[in-house]
């Protein structure tokens, strides 16, 4: 056991673990829906505040899908409320200021970007061309690393439906990549 596991409130532990693991994928996911960082941050913050209000025992087995479901709902609430389905261009998203950026992080990111080979760039643009549903499922699978089951819970579709969507999108991307070669 670790040094002081007993000095812990399960809800607070759950919150901290969830924050350290899912903050980034959730914010990326929110940005992919909302298209802007500020509102995405609000949605994610709201999601975590709601997480703390949960009884840990009740959701411990499905924390991940719970987070993405609530975050997704928050995003669509925001969209509904503001009645604007605006989507920023990818380039705009990339250039959005992030107040958490420290210079070292920024530099590292720029280096990463420079290293990003053309294959990946092409792949990203192929992903953008996918239908919306496929894009969302692929992001949840490949970026947030949700299982088919978890994706099914978030999007309220069956596991086999998720499998089919992933398969079709994967096939399209493979074909696109093969053509590049």
């Amino acid at each position: 056991m670790s040094s002081s596991p007993r000095v812990i409130d399960p809800s607070a532990v759950l919150l901290r673990r969830a924050l350290s693991e899912f903050e980034v994928p959730l914010t990326r996911y929110a940005v992919s829906i909302l298209g802007d960082i500020e509102r995405s941050r609000d949605a994610v913050q709201d999601t975590f505040i709601r997480l703390y209000a949960q009884t840990p025992e009740a959701i411990e087995d499905k924390v991940k899908s719970w987070l993405f479901t609530v975050c997704r709902n928050r995003c669509y609430d925001i969209l509904k409320k503001e009645k604007r389905m605006m989507r920023l261009d990818d380039d705009e998203i990339h250039s959005l200021p992030s107040s958490t950026d420290d210079p070292a992080q920024l530099m590292a990111r720029q280096e990463d970007r420079a290293k990003l080979n053309s294959d990946l760039k092409k792949l990203l643009s192929s992903i953008e061309e996918l239908p919306e549903r496929q894009r969302e499922v692929m992001r949840l699978k490949f970026q947030a690393d949700l299982s088919y089951k978890e994706i099914g819970e978030v999007l309220e579709i069956t596991v086999s439906n998720v499998g089919f969507i992933v398969h079709s999108a994967f096939k399209k991307l493979r074909e696109a990549m093969k053509q590049e070669e």
Binding site: V7, R28, V31, V44, S98, T100
Partner: peptide
């Protein structure tokens, strides 16, 4: 490809705000 996307996260104030609400790390 997905990993190469920018890393988005909340502002430090937002994080603090969330943690502040749960500041009570209690023994259980």
């Amino acid at each position: 490809a997905y990993d190469s996307e920018p890393i988005f996260r909340m502002t430090p104030e937002q994080r603090e705000n969330i943690l502040e609400d749960s500041e009570i790390v209690a023994i259980t």
